[in-house]
Amino acid sequence: MEKTYFDKAHFWGRLWSLAALGMLMCIPACFCLYYNIWPAAVGVMKGLIAVIPMFWTIAIVEVISYSPMLGVGGMYISFVSGNISNLKLPCAIAAMENAKVRANTEEGEVITTIATATSAITTTLIIAAGVLVFSPIMPYLTDENSIFAPAFQQVLPALFGALGASYFAKHFKLTVLPILTGVIVLVFAPSMGAGTLIPITVIVSLIGAQVMFKKNVV
């Protein structure tokens, strides 16, 4: 039986994913080899234990939920280049609308692949250009005594405020419980780092959402 385009796309995608995985691991490995320093495995493991439960759960949910919209090529491209929900996904959906094709058809597959690949190339070029243009002035912006120093100290509240705002507005009921949990935990353990606090708030948030979903509250 002749292989369909989808079969072939899966074959290429698998090869590229494995190559990307190799490259991803190659970056820290090259750094360690070049400078001949190796961080203590225990430290790295501790850091990983804090993020893996959430990151890997999100990965499963994302692979499953984006899959019907991004098609085969679009998935393999998007999960290598990243920025999916804020860039690749809306781009692919807009392209299908413009070309008047549907997802999960061969036409849709061709259009989403072209759209996500174009988007990945454009993003990569723009980020690289931005880095080259801005890197000479970075030291002046970020010096400890620079007038801009407080801005960089407050990156996290600024980032998570903006990131959270639209989620809070959309899912207010889901928001109250995890924030309250975080605050209460910190009342008793004020120095707890984000790495330890995250698994607690994520698990509480997931359980809360599941309960509210079952009870039809959300």
Partner: peptide
């Protein structure tokens, strides 16, 4: 349900940072 769980995981993550900005030492 899938959307909700993705949102809940994400909100849990943001909440940790928000709580630290409010009351963390």
């Amino acid at each position: 349900w899938a959307d909700l769980m993705a949102a809940a995981a994400f909100i849990g993550l943001i909440s940790a940072f928000i709580a630290r900005s409010i009351i963390g030492a």
